[in-house]
């Protein structure tokens, strides 16, 4: 308990540090949101200057940071120039979509990778293991971009799946079941893309962790006592191999928000990805910083979750 309290304080300082750094880096980048207006002859320089001062961009950096901090404490996370609203509602709305996508993808890829990895490790160096290892290696070698484009191409040619967006136009008129169906159809392609992208890595980690454990004496003694192979694999080997996998899981939760950036942009999924790209291109700095802070929060949260799971899963850690 005290450990988690300490971790929480630690996290606060981490977030503070990240905010200072991202502020600095954003400030180091040349130009700001009003740069383009300055080039526009129809807008007078005085107007631009007035707008800059309205948004506080003419203030020195420490003061801007201080004002941003105040807005964070108010729960606004700063102000978006291009959307003309506080950052938080913007991010929260988009983060929901990103989470829906990435959580589905993460869940699916773990659900597929665990049985595959266990199966493969239990038939080490047999043909099944070889085929799976070769298959995942190939998949690993294909860039995500290519994977997404191929999937889009297939969807276009066959017309089986919509190629973009979150919902159909008629979504609001569908009944509850229709809504679910429509969401599944829309989410299918981006999820497939993310699953195929992360599956090889998960599979390899699970397989190698299990291969190592399956070599250990307690597995041989379990087999020597006639414990059925399925129980040996899932009740003995998998829990004993879980520690590195839980850390990996925590990490994958941590990267949930950023992992889907490319896929979201390509498949026009209205998540944080496209918003962040837009914000960066428009120098909508507070939106960028907000997104970065969200990602950091997830990373820290993921690791915290992993520690918690480790604590629950491994009695040896619980002792300390």
């Amino acid at each position: 308990m005290r450990y988690f309290f300490r971790r929480l304080i630690h996290t606060m300082f981490l977030l503070l540090g990240v905010s200072v750094l991202s502020f600095l880096f954003v400030a180091l980048a040349p130009g700001d949101y009003f740069e383009e207006m300055r080039l526009n002859p129809q807008i007078s320089q005085a107007t631009v200057a007035a707008m800059r001062s309205k948004y506080g961009l003419d203030q020195p950096l420490p003061k801007r940071y201080f004002r941003w901090m105040q807005s964070v404490l108010r729960g606004e996370l700063g102000f978006s120039f291009s959307y003309d609203t506080p950052v938080r509602p913007l991010l929260v709305a988009r983060a929901k979509n990103t989470l829906l996508l990435t959580a589905t993808a993460a869940l699916l890829s773990w659900l597929v990778a665990i049985p595959l990895g266990v199966w493969s490790s239990s038939r080490k160096a047999k043909w099944l293991d070889r085929v799976l290892t070769l298959g995942t290696t190939t998949l690993l070698a294909i860039p995500d971009l290519m994977l997404a484009l191929v999937l889009l191409l297939i969807a276009l040619r066959t017309g089986w799946f919509p190629t973009g967006g979150l919902h159909d136009i008629r979504f609001s008129r569908l009944n509850a079941w229709g809504k679910v169906e429509d969401t599944v159809a829309h989410i299918f392609l981006p999820v497939m893309c993310l699953v195929l992208g992360s599956l090889p890595i998960l599979f390899r980690h699970i397989r190698s962790a299990l291969v190592e454990v399956l070599d250990s004496p307690f597995i041989r003694s379990a087999r020597g006592h006639g414990i059925p192979e399925g129980r040996v694999l899932f009740l003995y080997a998998l829990p004993a191999a879980a520690n590195p996998l839980i850390s990996l899981f925590g990490f994958s939760v941590g990267t949930l928000l950023s992992a889907s950036l490319l896929v979201e942009v390509l498949m026009s999924w209205p998540g944080i990805g496209p918003l962040l790209v837009e914000a960066i291109l428009a120098r909508d700095i507070y939106l960028v910083i907000g997104a970065v802070m969200f990602s950091t929060l997830f990373l820290v949260g993921g690791n915290l979750l992993a520690d918690l799971l480790l604590y629950l899963a491994d009695p040896r850690i619980r002792m300390e």
């Binding site: 250990s216 307690f218 379990a222 003995y236 829990p239 899963a313 009695p315």
Partner: peptide, 8 residues
């Protein structure tokens, strides 16, 4: 030492 399952 090592022939028991460490997590059961």
């Amino acid at each position: 030492e090592i022939s028991l399952n460490p997590v059961m």
